[in-house]
Amino acid sequence: MLETIGLIFIGLGLAFDVFGCIGMVRLPDVYLRLQAGTKCVTLGTCGILFGTFLIMGFSAGGIKALLCMFFIVLTNAVSAHAIARSAHKAGVKMWEGTIVDHYAEDQGEKK
């Protein structure tokens, strides 16, 4: 039973990882690719690791999977934020379809 649920989690995780990779290729600029590359992969990888944990239980491998989940959730958010901010500060152009950029407006006022 647990094994089946674990396999379902792994399957879902793989699906979201694939969507993330497709997004990396299809989306037009840094910020949008960042979204596909970090977020979809967070849920995907966490799903795979959680499935692994369900199948292996509280053994050596299962506990390591849980720890990896924890660290992925911690680091992904921070790294996504850091990359987005530094890209904006470095003046990476946004896609021409971008509607509005309040951040650039407010930064412009300060200078």
């Binding site: 969507f19 997004g23 979809c40």
Partner: peptide, 18 residues
């Protein structure tokens, strides 16, 4: 997001908002 990425016409309207 998966829906937007897989949609053939890519229905995205990106923006930075406060």
């Amino acid at each position: 997001v998966a829906y937007r990425v897989l949609h053939p016409r890519l229905p995205i309207r990106p923006a930075v908002v406060r």
